[in-house]
């Protein structure tokens, strides 16, 4: 297996990476772990003219600053998996990364690379949207922040401008009685997801829902924020019946794209099941109840 020829340079800082990308023209691409891009290059589905290797552009830092979890774009999936700081502040990340690929992919793949790739089944994309993350990017025009919900446009397409590179991802860490859940079903552990559902729930002292977010991943061309459909839960105690209604409504309305291994209707049914499980699990965790698992889609 041989990719098409390309040039390769290393950037020792983010500004240098931006300069190199700008000089490389529109076929220049950033490479960090390469776990998404390189398979496409090997199969000749991608043929960048220049690879700018950013793996030495910054540290793989994980910081908790002012109610924000700030991850360097170079933080690897395995770093997330084993970080107590992440587990304590944004457990949905910890839960989601175990679904990614295998131990090798998790050791090379980075959060910045995963988000910038724009692959619609990417677990971290779904989590970023569900947790309201902000993506910090640096480009020829300077630094800007993109809400994760605005980053993903369609298959392998993001709102990053040419010459822009993701440098960090920021996750809000709200206090209070809050719970989250990430649910995924793939035909085989580590494979591309058939359906993902990510939910966060905040409760008041009386166990009534203060806020709820629900995002469905892997069924459309990008993560789909369906929080609006969950609004009936607000002000209520979250129970199976109400959640079931929300989940069915979400499933009925969501646009489901094709998949090699499953028909649209089946995946629509899974949306309903996983959305329900994600909401109930998140609510249980918010209530601080003994962890009740409403069924985890993972085979592993």
């Amino acid at each position: 297996m041989y990719s098409a020829p390309f040039e390769y340079v290393r950037a020792s800082s983010w500004p240098e990476a931006v300069d190199l990308l700008e000089g490389g023209g529109e076929d220049a691409r950033v490479i960090a772990g390469g776990q998404s891009l390189v398979p496409m290059m090997m199969l000749r589905l991608a043929a960048p003219s220049l690879l700018v290797d950013v793996s030495a552009a910054a540290d793989r830092s994980v910081d908790l600053v002012d109610a924000e979890l700030v991850l360097s774009a170079l933080v690897r999936h395995a770093d997330i998996e084993h970080s107590e700081v992440v587990r304590g502040s944004c457990p949905m990340l910890t839960e989601a990364v175990t679904h990614i690929g295998n131990v090798r992919v998790r050791h090379r793949g980075t959060i910045g690379g995963s988000l910038a790739h724009g692959e619609p089944t990417a677990e971290l994309a779904t989590v970023a949207v569900a947790e309201g993350a902000t993506v910090t990017v640096l480009g020829p025009g300077g630094e800007r922040a993109i809400p994760a919900g605005d980053l993903f446009v369609t298959h392998f397409t993001t709102s990053l401008e040419p010459g822009e590179v993701v440098t960090a991802v920021r996750f809000p860490v709200p206090g209070g009685r809050r719970g989250s859940s990430f649910q995924e079903i793939a035909r085989r552990a580590g494979d591309f997801a058939l359906v993902e559902a990510a939910a966060t729930v905040a409760l008041d002292e009386d166990d009534r829902c203060l806020s709820v977010r629900l995002v469905v991943g892997a069924v459309s061309d990008r993560p789909v924020d369906v929080s609006q459909a969950a609004r009936p839960l607000i002000g209520e105690r979250i129970g199976e019946d109400a959640v079931g209604e929300v989940a069915r409504a979400v499933a009925a309305e969501i646009e489901v794209g094709p998949h090699t291994h499953a028909g649209r209707e089946y995946r629509r049914r899974l949306v309903s099941v996983l959305a329900g499980r994600a909401l109930l699990t998140a609510a249980d965790r918010a209530a601080g109840a003994v962890h009740t698992d409403h069924g985890n889609g993972a085979r592993a």
Binding site: A189, G190, D191, R299
Partner: peptide
Amino acid sequence: PSSTLFAEYLIPSSVD
């Protein structure tokens, strides 16, 4: 074939 990727030919892994 709907796919010629090994990633999509589902032989059992150790956890299956």
